[in-house]
Design a protein around this nucleic acid. Structure first.
Lengths: 374, 374
DNA sequence: CTGAAAGCGCTTACAG
DNA sequence: CTGAAAGCGCTTACAG
C-alpha cells in the first residue's frame, strides 16, 4: 500500500521560505531569480524529489504538450513503422503521445474518437490510419472546423484543408513493374491489396501505368485481389496462373503476399526468378532471408511519421501567442518517394552477388523528395 | 486559421440558466437532476458540441484515466503484440494510453521516464520492455516507493513487490526441444537470443532441461548466440554445424532467426526437415508460409498485455476511496503458458497434412494457465 | 528580484 | 432537486 501523497508547489514554497510563484519561476527557468534563492529552491526540489503536476500546468497554459495519435493496429508493418517515427520525433520535441488504435479500418465512428482526443486537450492530432472506404475525418465535414492542427498520414488527402503526408504509392507500383520489365518480363501479373484501400488502388495504378508506358496493354496482364496476408498471396498466384499460364513476373503489393507467392511457386515447382520473377513491397525485416531473397520496395514510413510531428509542432509554434489559438498546417499533400531494393527473386540475368541484403536501385537518395509543396 | 475558443461549463450553465454544478451533474450522469433540467442541459450540450475539459476534471478528481506505458520499439514482434493487448484492454476500460518507447533496452535512465510519467499524473504504469541487463525499475530501488500501481510485463520479476506478468519462457525452450526429440532428433542445437536478455536465458534453460530430462548431456549439444535477426540465424547454423556436423535439429529462439536457418539450409543443400528439423519461436504471421512452413511456439503476448491493464485497473479500483491513495497489485509473478504449433519444418515422420497453417500440439488450451498466483 | 491576487475549468462537500 | 463557496496545483499579469 503506497499512500504517499504527492507533493505540491506550496509545500516546496513553504520549505524554501518563498512564494509559490518564485518556485514556479525556478521550475520554468526564468532568469529573474536571485542566485541564492535559486539555489535554495533547487536544493529543496532535489531533496524532496518534487515533480510539478503537468495537469495543472497544462490547465493554466492551455497546452497539454500531448499529441493525439490515431493509428491502425500494430500488426501491420506500415502503420507500426509510421508510429515509430511519430513516437521518436515526439519524444525529441518534448511531446507525450496519446495512443488510440482503431481496429476496423472502415470504422465511421470517428466522431467519438475525435471528441475524446479533443476533451483531453491534445495540442494536435495525427491521423495515421490507412485510408479505407470512407473512414476519414473530413468525410464528416469536420476537417476545417477542428480548432487544433491535424495532419493526415498515409492517405490520399487533398480533399480538405488538412495537410496530408504519404508515400507515393503509385510510384511503388511503377518502379516495381519497370524493374520487372527491364529484367525481361513479358507478362507481369499483380496481386493487389483490398481495393477499398487507397494504397492498394494507387499501387495498381502505378503497375498499370508502367505497362502502358512500355506500349503494353494492361488488360492482357492478370490481376488478383489479395487481403495483404500470405495466404492470399499464395491463392493469388494460383489465380494469376489460371488467367495466364504464361505469366513470368509478379508484383505483389506487400511482402507477406509476396511470401505467399514464393511458397506457392515452390509447391508448383516454378523456379524463382528463372520461371517467375517476384517483387514485393515494404522491405520487412524477413524479406532479405526469404528463399530466394525478395526484391521489394522500401517506403520511408518512419520519415513520414516524424515529418507529421514536426508539422504539428510548427503549427503550434506558429500560433500568434495567445492561448488556444493555433495555426493550421498548410493544406497540401506531401509525397515521399519509395525506393527499390533488388534481391534474388528478380535477379534473373545478372550474376548473383555475394550479399543477400540487396542494394538500392532507387533513383532517390532517401532524403525527402517531395512532389507536393510544403 | 482556426481560432475558435473552447467552450466551458460556465457557458453551458449560462445558456441553460442553471449553475455549473448542475451541468456537472448532468455530465456525470448523477441521478439527482430534475427531468426537465436534464433535458434542457442535454440539449444545449448536444447543440453546442460542448466537451468537458478532461484536464480540469482530472485535476479535481486526482485521477487522469491515463495509463503510462513504457514499451520497447514496435519493430520487435513480442513487444508490439503486448502493446496491442494493452491498448485494446485500456480502451475497453476507458483509459487513455500515454506511450513511451525506449530505444535502447539497456538504458539505465529510467528515472527521467518515470518522473515524466509521474508528473503527468498517470493512474498507473505498465513497464513492458524486455528485461535486459539492469534496465528494470526496481534496480533503482524505486519499486515499492512509487505511489502508484506498476505492473511489469515480460521480465523475470519477483525481486520486488511489483506484479510481474510474463510468458513462461523456459517452457518455450522445453516444449520445442521435447517436440524435436520426440520426432527422433538426436543432436539438438540451439540459437539463443543475446544472453543479456532474460527471455533468451530462460529459453536456453528450457532447452537444456528438456535434453537432460531425456538423459542427454546438454554440453554435447551445440549453442550459438544470435541477436534475434535473420542474419544471425543464418550465421548461427554455420556455427552450429562447425561445432557438430552431425546436427539434426535446431531450436531457434525466435522466428526471424529460424528463417535465417532455413535460408542457410537451402544454401547448404540440407533438406528441412529430413536432414535438419527446425523449430522457431513467436509464430509471426509469415512463419506459416516460410519454405518449409515453420514449426514454432506461440506466446499469448496479447493476453499478457490485456491482463496487465486489468491488474492496474483493479489496483486503482481497490483504492480505499480517498484520492491519490491506491492499492498496490499483489506482488507475484504470473506466468502464461506458450503453445507449440507444428508445421512442416519439423514434421519428418508423419505424412504432410493438407494445411500449412499447422495445428496446435500444446497441452494448453489457450485460456490463462497460470503457474504463479494472482 | 519577489509576492498578493486572480484565474485555468472543472468537482466536491455543504446548505437549503 | 439546486446553488454559493472552496479547492485541485499550477501560471499569468500586476505591483512594488
Amino acid at each position: 500500500m503506497a499512500t504517499r501523497r504527492r507533493m505540491t508547489i506550496k509545500e516546496v514554497a513553504r520549505a524554501a521560505g518563498v512564494s509559490t510563484q518564485t518556485v514556479s519561476r525556478v521550475l520554468n527557468n526564468r532568469p529573474d531569480v536571485a542566485f541564492e534563492t535559486l539555489e535554495r529552491v533547487r536544493r529543496i526540489i532535489a531533496d524532496t524529489g518534487y515533480t510539478p503536476n503537468m495537469l495543472a500546468r497544462s490547465l493554466t497554459q492551455g497546452r497539454s504538450h500531448i499529441i493525439g495519435v490515431v493509428g491502425y493496429g500494430l500488426d501491420y508493418f506500415g502503420p507500426s513503422r509510421v508510429l515509430t517515427g511519430i513516437e521518436e520525433q515526439a519524444a525529441d520535441l518534448g511531446y507525450a503521445i496519446s495512443l488510440n488504435l482503431i481496429h476496423d479500418p472502415e470504422t465511421r465512428d470517428v466522431d467519438a474518437l475525435l471528441s475524446s482526443l479533443f476533451s483531453r486537450q491534445v495540442d494536435g492530432i495525427i491521423w495515421a490510419i490507412p485510408e479505407v472506404g470512407e473512414n476519414r475525418v473530413w468525410s464528416h465535414g469536420k476537417g476545417p472546423e477542428l480548432p487544433l492542427p491535424v495532419v493526415l498520414v498515409g492517405g490520399m488527402g487533398g480533399q480538405t484543408s488538412l495537410l496530408s503526408i504519404a508515400i507515393d504509392n503509385a510510384a511503388i507500383g511503377r518502379i516495381a513493374t519497370e524493374h520487372l520489365l527491364a529484367g525481361g518480363a513479358r507478362r507481369v501479373g499483380i496481386i493487389t491489396g483490398p481495393l477499398s484501400w487507397w494504397e492498394a488502388r494507387e499501387r495498381r495504378l502505378g503497375w498499370r501505368g508502367a505497362l502502358e508506358a512500355h506500349g503494353l496493354t494492361a488488360d492482357e496482364h492478370p490481376v488478383a485481389i489479395g487481403d495483404w496476408s500470405p495466404n492470399s498471396g499464395e491463392q493469388g498466384l494460383y489465380d494469376l496462373l489460371d488467367q495466364r499460364p504464361d505469366l513470368d513476373a509478379i508484383f505483389a503489393s506487400n511482402d507477406q503476399m509476396a511470401l505467399g507467392v514464393l511458397h506457392a511457386a515452390h509447391r508448383l515447382g516454378r523456379r524463382v526468378p528463372e520461371d517467375l520473377a517476384v517483387v514485393g513491397t515494404d522491405n520487412i525485416a524477413e524479406s532479405s532471408h526469404f528463399w530466394p531473397s525478395l526484391t521489394t520496395v522500401h517506403q520511408p514510413l518512419r520519415d513520414a511519421g516524424a515529418l507529421a510531428v514536426r508539422e504539428i509542432d510548427q503549427s503550434i509554434a506558429a500560433a500568434p501567442g495567445s492561448r488556444r489559438v493555433v495555426g493550421t498546417p498548410p493544406s497540401h499533400a506531401v509525397r515521399l518517394e519509395p525506393e527499390l531494393i533488388v534481391r534474388d527473386s528478380s535477379r534473373s540475368v545478372e550474376p548473383i552477388l555475394s550479399s543477400s541484403n540487396g542494394r538500392s536501385m532507387g533513383t532517390h537518395d532517401g532524403s525527402y523528395p517531395v512532389s507536393g509543396s510544403l
